[in-house]
């Protein structure tokens, strides 16, 4: 587990800020101790310092992971969020989308959200902003990117996609082996 370089830290925070905005600070400044981001095989883990100190006893070649995987850096040095980050992002989400029960399954199978499946959308969602996707019972299902702004959504035809799929909790089953 190594520290993220400054460049990568910046890329990571820029990505997180797309979803949770200034709440990124809350991920770093936590009342329950110090949490930090660590990198292992291009994957970024969010881990409390207590556990990190314990994990440092394991040689880095033999350590698979410690902490929560937030995502990974691609070969072109972009950051991709993984579904495993959902639990940390959901409470701080800035813009949200609620799905109708009929569209829930479609989304969980990895499809984009169309206007017909859109239950509610938080106000002032901008185009191409990162959004958290919930079902009507307020259970976080995954995240995506808003394909249209809130105002545009009202005029969109029912088959137009409103939110591009990025990750959903169905991935825990679909791509179990490459999540970590």
């Amino acid at each position: 587990m190594k520290r993220l370089s400054e460049e990568r830290t910046k890329i990571l925070f820029e990505k997180l800020a797309k979803y949770i905005g200034p709440n990124v600070k809350l991920l770093i400044e936590r009342p329950d101790g110090i949490y930090c981001f660590r990198e292992q095989k291009d994957r970024v883990y969010y881990i409390s310092e207590k556990i990190l100190k314990l994990a440092e006893n394991v040689p880095p070649t033999q350590l698979i992971c410690a902490g929560t995987c937030f995502g990974k850096f691609t070969k072109t040095n972009k950051f991709r969020l993984h579904i495993t980050a959902l639990n940390y992002l959901a409470p701080y989400a800035q813009s949200k989308i609620w799905l109708k029960p009929s569209a829930e399954q479609q989304f969980l199978y990895g499809n984009h959200v169309s206007k017909s499946g859109l239950g509610r959308i938080s106000e002032n969602t901008e185009k191409y902003q990162g959004v958290l996707v919930y079902n009507m019972a307020d259970l976080p299902l995954g995240f995506g990117v808003a394909a249209r702004s809130t105002a545009d959504c009202k005029h969109a035809d029912p088959l137009a996609s409103v939110c591009f799929h990025q990750a959903d909790i169905g991935e825990y089953i679909r791509s179990e082996e490459d999540l970590l």
Partner: peptide
Amino acid sequence: SDEKTQNLNIVETVLNKRPKIDMEKAVA
């Protein structure tokens, strides 16, 4: 704690980026 302050500084720079005048955003 040092790392935390470093990270916070980076977050500040990320969040304080001067917003561009985005046509689409403005239209929306």
